[in-house]
Design a protein around this nucleic acid. Sequence first.
DNA 1: TATGAATGAGAGTTCATTCAT
DNA 2: TATGAATGAACTCTCATTCAT
Lengths: 203, 203, 203, 203
Amino acid sequence: MKEKKSKRDLILETAYRLFMEKGFWDTKIIDISDAAGIGKGTVYEYFDSKDTIILELFKTKVADPYKDLSLLIDKEISCETKIKEYIEFEVFNTTKFGSNKNMLADILIKSDIFHNQVLVDEIHKLIAYKLKIMHSIIKEGIEKGEFLDVDPLLTATCIMGAVNSFISFNYNTIGPSCFINIEKSEVWDLGELYKILFSGLKK
Amino acid sequence: MKEKKSKRDLILETAYRLFMEKGFWDTKIIDISDAAGIGKGTVYEYFDSKDTIILELFKTKVADPYKDLSLLIDKEISCETKIKEYIEFEVFNTTKFGSNKNMLADILIKSDIFHNQVLVDEIHKLIAYKLKIMHSIIKEGIEKGEFLDVDPLLTATCIMGAVNSFISFNYNTIGPSCFINIEKSEVWDLGELYKILFSGLKK
Amino acid sequence: MKEKKSKRDLILETAYRLFMEKGFWDTKIIDISDAAGIGKGTVYEYFDSKDTIILELFKTKVADPYKDLSLLIDKEISCETKIKEYIEFEVFNTTKFGSNKNMLADILIKSDIFHNQVLVDEIHKLIAYKLKIMHSIIKEGIEKGEFLDVDPLLTATCIMGAVNSFISFNYNTIGPSCFINIEKSEVWDLGELYKILFSGLKK
Amino acid sequence: MKEKKSKRDLILETAYRLFMEKGFWDTKIIDISDAAGIGKGTVYEYFDSKDTIILELFKTKVADPYKDLSLLIDKEISCETKIKEYIEFEVFNTTKFGSNKNMLADILIKSDIFHNQVLVDEIHKLIAYKLKIMHSIIKEGIEKGEFLDVDPLLTATCIMGAVNSFISFNYNTIGPSCFINIEKSEVWDLGELYKILFSGLKK
DNA sequence: TATGAATGAGAGTTCATTCAT
DNA sequence: TATGAATGAACTCTCATTCAT
């Protein structure tokens, strides 16, 4: 495993680009070496396997930038500002790769899932359908004076994200592996979720 | 393509079970036929391909149940209640397959992503890390009297979900394919996001 | 793993033939399937791997025939006859595959050793050289009346084989794995070897 | 092809050591250069190929020491002594590389044969089985007073070696390449083999 | 209708060898 | 003289799909 920067980086960048474009499974080693203008064997001079490449990309492109995020906790600013800074950081971090690029999400969502565009289209159709309903409800609520004057689509998007996340963590899809060192009451109450969505965080 | 209900359903149910257990890519056609107690060729009597099976499963198990969700819009109830009903439906819908089962999420998250446990562990580690920070901030905010008395972990989870969703839709990762028939102002303002998170929806 | 006799046997026989002709390492799976007139994948329908094929061949062609050899021990015949029968069995067993064929020895000695005909020639040259010397000594011994009137070349061959075997077992090349349940005095004395070679077994 | 002694010898000695330890096929060129502390390319400055190395090793380590063995023929000693000296030389020669080391045999028997420990175990099992039978017969013969009082295991080992050798040469496995300049009667008689085994060489 | 034997394109990976420096 | 980065032919094994029965 050589460490010479340029060639290793060339492979990494090429792999990254192809993974983003075609997905991990649709990108073959030969695709990477061809696109990089090098021999297939050269890829293996720098990486043990295809798995090592995606792992390295994840670590450097995705995970590493978060390293100092925890410094945020001890900053002398209000918690509201902390959350705002967190979000700004997250937005910067996941969009810095270029317009419309969120590496992890992209690779996951791209062709990789099922090599099946028809299915991907169906999934998007469902999301669109749900979004439209939620959007319509919020719009109505605003018009009727029931809700604050927020952007209805943005809000629909956020609520859907919050709910999906709530479900995934609450009903263990993602697994308790993500709750390291944090105590979680057995099953969360929907009432708590509503509280946040309707009243927000601030006192 | 035959339509005799029983055998077709047997294949579908077996495939569904195996996809949930081992993921889509790790489930081979032979696994399905073996588990169903039928011949490998028989699978192809009822389905054109493996892709057709997952597509059918998605349609019937995931998408179809949402068919009447739009009726919610015209119900004679407050918008707050509509959203609550929406959420309750979503929770029911994604957890009805058994404890801790959310079909789509499960299949995506299972072995399928990269066949690479090391990478999956890294991803979980990052999620856990971010969650811990957010959790810590919210807890502090509550203690200091800055935030309402919410469940900090649940709230952290929801905010992360909302933010991820905001980013995905705002910066086009998922693609505009999900905004069919909805007008979206070019790029959403972070201020709008903060408004919802801190003040909530309700007036 | 199907068990239908004919195709499985076809693969086995074809592999056997090619292993004998070209050696194990020089025989590729595609060679076997081509020679058998079947598809490459078919080989894997019947055998898990190339290793499984050679193992199966060893078991059925080489090891199995020895199964009843131990019955010899309890036969009501003289020990001299027992040894003669043992040898006759061994000769039959290792030559039954056709003229000039001793499966295991052939595969080992063929191209497999080093893929290197020049080296194989050198090895043969050395054997020939040693054989010639031994042959010459024995011939002289017979002519001078020192030795019995035996076939000098045959005798030279046997002595070389006995000595090689003695060395291999005595100095552990083969490893003690072959002395299961038999007690071996630490290192054998050359005197014992001479006793057998010069005086023979019989009283 | 340079001839500078020291580096060439370093490569040779390193290759020799690794071939003995891991076998020819398991030893890669990079292993040799690494172990020798030189560059991979340097190996090719001194040797045309991996094959050239093993050939050179065979010649210098194995074959060359036999160069003067033929002088034995003309020594003024009895033929019995000649054979004894031959054997002593052979024992010395094949064991001089260190305890339990017989270069050629070692390399052949090591990992090289089939990279398949299961098969190697099976082969050893068969050898052990045959050895046990022969051992048992000889022991019985001695106890009954039919045979001389020899070491039964050593004798079994030698007889097996002699018989294998007899078969290999008699039925052409090794090929007539080893009978250069020696006349061989078409097929040897088993009677001749028995004569030597039971009566020995000496008059 | 049901089968499962047969298929072969295609993947990741290895490593002896080359050659520009 | 010495290097090691670069190479690519070659290999084993996988598995969705076909099709004769």
